[in-house]
Design a protein around this nucleic acid. Sequence first.
DNA 1: GCTGAACATTTGACAACCTGAACCTTTCAT
DNA 2: ATGAAAGGTTCAGGTTGTCAAATGTTCAGC
Lengths: 171, 171
Amino acid sequence: MAEQTPTVDPITLEVVDLMARLVGLFHREYEEAAAARSLTGAQAKVLALLRRGPMPMRHIAQTLACEPSNITGIVDRLEGRGFVTRESDPQDRRVKLVVATDAGRSASAELRESLNFAREPLAALEGEERAQLRDLLRRMLDSTGAGTGPSSGDGGAGGAAKAGGGTAKAG
Amino acid sequence: MAEQTPTVDPITLEVVDLMARLVGLFHREYEEAAAARSLTGAQAKVLALLRRGPMPMRHIAQTLACEPSNITGIVDRLEGRGFVTRESDPQDRRVKLVVATDAGRSASAELRESLNFAREPLAALEGEERAQLRDLLRRMLDSTGAGTGPSSGDGGAGGAAKAGGGTAKAG
DNA sequence: GCTGAACATTTGACAACCTGAACCTTTCAT
DNA sequence: ATGAAAGGTTCAGGTTGTCAAATGTTCAGC
């Protein structure tokens, strides 16, 4: 906090700007792909998380950066459609493990494969450039220690964060 | 559908994965920064769009990829807090131009500057590497024709897309 | 000039997402 | 055994988003 950065590197600013547009693109693609399978974005994210195996609700909430009470509803709807089931953890009966059903797994897999995001914009780069990009991104992410865990797997379009009723009080 | 792409370039896959994590990070940061100023993500996005000048509601809806009726509500709340005003376009009285007030402009500017995302992960890169990253991202985005227009300016974290009631019918 | 199609915005109903506080059950330390 | 702590759920309340049906405005064609 002691450091004053009144004017940021102009290149940095532009990168942030590009990133914002990329985020927009990615987010849109993801929601559309989910909607095409009658899933909402949030439901798809949870389902994607479950591809690695059963997971306690609390862990889901942490990964998605939202309140646990929120997950309850999402899992309710997912369960109502037969995409997941709740099983209580024999180790700790407070915990409920959310498990993807076959339908859930295959829906998530389909969704992941339908994500054209990879092919479209990335096709504009040469092989070596892609490797360059990969290295740069990797270094950025490593620096933040933003590891959700093992990386490859979910195509989750990102965290949820505080937005709703709380701080923002409208007229 | 005719094209078979069973196995994508492994580097591409990894880039997509890294991108997804980055998108998540960015998204979260953006929402947090907005919440810190008592704004929701959607409100911040609209405000960011308005940094370039007044804009018809219809255009806002197009840029954010959502229904115009949705914008009505967001602008309502923004207006209720004195961040924007509605003025009818003298050229076409059907159109309402949304204009950011001084408060709105400065809130958006503050938000933009508070985005630590730039400093944190981007600090891990050298100056030249940042330029490299910028060029690569630029090429990716140009290829998709995802130009909202002149690029630099808004920090809008992206589109909205279908999520709600429509296709997803819960139990 | 008048009529009707097309457009921009709004309204209302409804579903999903999200937070925050209160509550229940289970676990664990004392 | 008792009480604090943790995992989930429920409930109330606000925001975002969709869709369908208004309302007001513009524009083409007659």
